[in-house]
Amino acid sequence: MSKKSFRQAINEALRQEMRRDPRVILMGEDVAGGQGGSSGVTDAWGGVLGVTKGLYTEFGPERVLDTPITEASYIGAAAGAAATGLRPVAELMFVDFVGCCLDQIMNQAAKFRYMFGGKARTPLVIRAMYGAGFNAAAQHSQALYPIFTHIPGLKVVVPSSPYEAKGLLIEAIRDDDPVIFLENKVMYDDEEEVPDEAYTIPFGEANLTREGDDVTLVAFGRMVGFANEAADRLAKDGISCTVIDPRTTSPLDSATILDCVADTGRLVIVDEASPRCNMATDVAALVAEEAFDALKAPIRRVTPPHTPVPFATVLEKLYLPDVGRIEAAVRSVMGYKARQEA
């Protein structure tokens, strides 16, 4: 056990599963890291943000396939390879590029098992970076997990820390269904203790990172850390929060969310995705329908505004939910007074 970054945790998960199972292969743009570049250096970068570094050197061109910039072709090839016996991990680089290959994901990989009468298995993992705060502008900063969550037949993972990332990625690679694995690009240098051994974290089981009596916070991916920080600040003022990290948006651990709301009676949801039809609306609807009687205050959502992610640093900062906004939302539900009947 030692401290590892989010980037190292993912690299280690890929490396350990490739050593363990020869059917695991990587495909994607630049996964071999600067292959064929003018420098002549093999694996100089290890992917656009260095996540796959060293894998091409260890496993070679047969198992680390550097693809052209043709998402439709290699995501389609990965889906086919999965259906015919390999266990590909295809990297989409920025999740924003899904527009070029949504058919291969939505109409092919996600539908194989259902349309082939349960006889097809599609052990495909698609990794991609998401998230704002990297000054990468509107086409490279979106948090698109709600789009995948919307599609039956896909499992969707949004890890919140290095420990979570390693265990969830190994689980994704060993899973027999297509899994979308989304990494917040701002978190690659985050560090924490991560076991050296391989381990798996099951899908559909939320993690409680804080436990409290007053307010339930549900947060996704990078927002979990923000919610924890807000909870710690609020604890100093005597407001105690439960923080739920659902880990996977599909399957979603609704039971844990409902249990916690039954205990606290107040719910704040923190979601980095655009506010219309995102995870916050989904969780809000779930709780409004199943736990209405438990609520002592209206449900509050902390999300960005419904705009593209701005490029200007000052606007991008304003765009993203932050600790202060989470804190303010919690205080507002704590201070809620029901209107008196006339």
Binding site: P195, E197, A198, Y199, T200, I201, L208, E211
Partner: peptide, 15 residues
Amino acid sequence: RNMVEGIIRFKRLDG
């Protein structure tokens, strides 16, 4: 809670 989490983390390890 942390004690339970510590044990679950050990039980998740391969083998």
